[in-house]
Design a protein around this nucleic acid. Sequence first.
DNA 1: TCTGATTCTGTAATCGTTTACAACAGGACT
DNA 2: AGTCCTGTTGTAAACGATTACAGAATCAGA
Lengths: 361, 361
Amino acid sequence: MMAPARRPGRTEREDAMTKGVPSIRDVADAAGVSTATVSRALSNPGVVTETTRRAVFDAIEQTGYTVNVAARNLRRRETGGVVVLVPNLGNAFFSLILAGIAEVMAEADLNVLIADTAPGVNDERQILDYLGNHRADGLIVLDGMLSADLLLDRGDPRTRAPLVFACEWVEDLVRPAVTIDNVAAARLAVRHLVDLGHRDIGHLAGPPGNVLTATRRAGAEQCLAEAGLDLRDDWFIDGDFSLRSGAAAAERWMALRHRPTALFCASDQMACGFIAALHRAGYSVPRDVSVVGFDDIEFAAHFVPPLTTIHQPRVEIGRTAARMLLRRMEARRMERPDPETTSETLPVRLVVRDSTRRVSV
Amino acid sequence: MMAPARRPGRTEREDAMTKGVPSIRDVADAAGVSTATVSRALSNPGVVTETTRRAVFDAIEQTGYTVNVAARNLRRRETGGVVVLVPNLGNAFFSLILAGIAEVMAEADLNVLIADTAPGVNDERQILDYLGNHRADGLIVLDGMLSADLLLDRGDPRTRAPLVFACEWVEDLVRPAVTIDNVAAARLAVRHLVDLGHRDIGHLAGPPGNVLTATRRAGAEQCLAEAGLDLRDDWFIDGDFSLRSGAAAAERWMALRHRPTALFCASDQMACGFIAALHRAGYSVPRDVSVVGFDDIEFAAHFVPPLTTIHQPRVEIGRTAARMLLRRMEARRMERPDPETTSETLPVRLVVRDSTRRVSV
DNA sequence: TCTGATTCTGTAATCGTTTACAACAGGACT
DNA sequence: AGTCCTGTTGTAAACGATTACAGAATCAGA
């Protein structure tokens, strides 16, 4: 061992060091081994001798070598990254989910690419580009409004990057998802209002067509029906999860002749927007109307009044989705059948704060 | 032209099509040209004949070819992406800045990698890995708390990826930055309070050591001094930009024997946390104390009461930083000297809402 | 017809890894 | 001594694009 083995092209390693980034070749020369051995010492340390390994790591230290990911990815036929499709980066709800994903992916040494699917910021071409499996080894989709066609029509099924949904999902597409039980969660929220004696309960829903909108509304209606309560059409208001749409809903509420005494909102942002707009018009929550939110974003605990809401474990949703995707990617690498088409449902809980109160008789 | 020029390895193009992703080779075969021509048709359409170009694009359409970015990046010696270092993904303030960056970068066909520098999610090794110029062609840093050493000690200056700061910056490091004039902005806020007749004005600051904390505090102190007002030490409270630290500040305020009648907060989140905590204790804003925030996040307009604050053009900050980085990257590619070490300052404005009021005499 | 310029295209080297395969050394066993 | 492992290393061929260079084709002008 320790044969000099000079690189044919360059005569001096010093020379190699002065220009450009050091490559595996430079490390090999410095350690007196072949590039293959360096590669092995890095990716599979068990197979090289203790002494060799030490020599290689010393050489790496000395040269300041870092692996060229483009070359590695090319050779390994993978990209070393996953992309996350987010409906709207501007929505604070997603930040902690992304944090959870980023945390797990960083452990696995995978890049996380975040793409906003909001119209305008990425057009369909861009999204398709991400889906073509040159950009990513896997995909986490947080946007249930993407068309199933878009998600399906991409390359050969065998070469297609695995996909998992989180939070939202696309109905027509059978793919594993990490979600909460939205129906049960909505029932929890409405049940709370019923228990407080409310009989006139409205619902501020998400955007039409969204799965969360549908499931949460269904849960609310079920619970209402069980309590033998009316489902008044004019008490169901369409929103879009945003603060602004909550404010718009307040206008609707105020215009009502017969107003519900309680409102279940499909997102905290809408609940806050609703409360703030009401407040500006001189109404007060929970005095004039009780409000339940959904998500338990940070602001919920720090609103005026603090918001009663459904807590979603956002970081954990992100982590779980990431781990699930990792398993599917691993299976594909090993050419094993997909380990799971089964989804995972995370528990939610009702957090009672001050935006709801017993109905005054 | 139109010579068959079969690929030596495979005999039938059909064969190539059935397995794996189509490569530039498959396109070349389908179009009856060489791979070089396909590459040229793609990256420099001007130099190939109209007919050839059409043949190539037809073949691309037909084969469903998409360029393998790993191969391209390896050959071009670039990565096709930029990374953004965010202090805390969980903080909603950054979402719109990221959206602005993503928008501009998408136009330039560059990936945006987002890395959270919060302790725990990415350790120093990870961050260094991003900085080594194998992961990214450029860097946008939103975190002013990173040590200058960390940012400096990476590889050869000539091969180092260009960096621009946005919002925050590191004092010791001479790098272009996209910022607002924090001193002037703070003066604007305090001036507003002074104009309303307040003479007892406190400041809820950011985390110690942060540049924003320092500059905003300096602006506040300047304005106070000009108005001939006391700068009481116990009216300056340390925070960390979060809702929680705003709530903590409320405890401090309530414990004060002599309380300021107005508080200038270095972030909207702290302002909201402060107001909410006060409200829970039976105090009311602006009745008991006027509050000015900073940032104008979405919630500011939808809080109870709507928050008087300093508006930051967040999307525009992101866009500007992205464009600036693009220029520096371009210059480096062309081996031109860096076009700018000069920073850019974006305008802010005071948005008066309902959390401040004229002091009652 | 010949020369030279111009335009287009093909050949082949190259980017920096990984990994199948072969080679080799050393030890255990017959 | 010969055979067969086992463990470690080197050789060289990929991976899929880009691009310097050279060659072919076309045309103008003499």
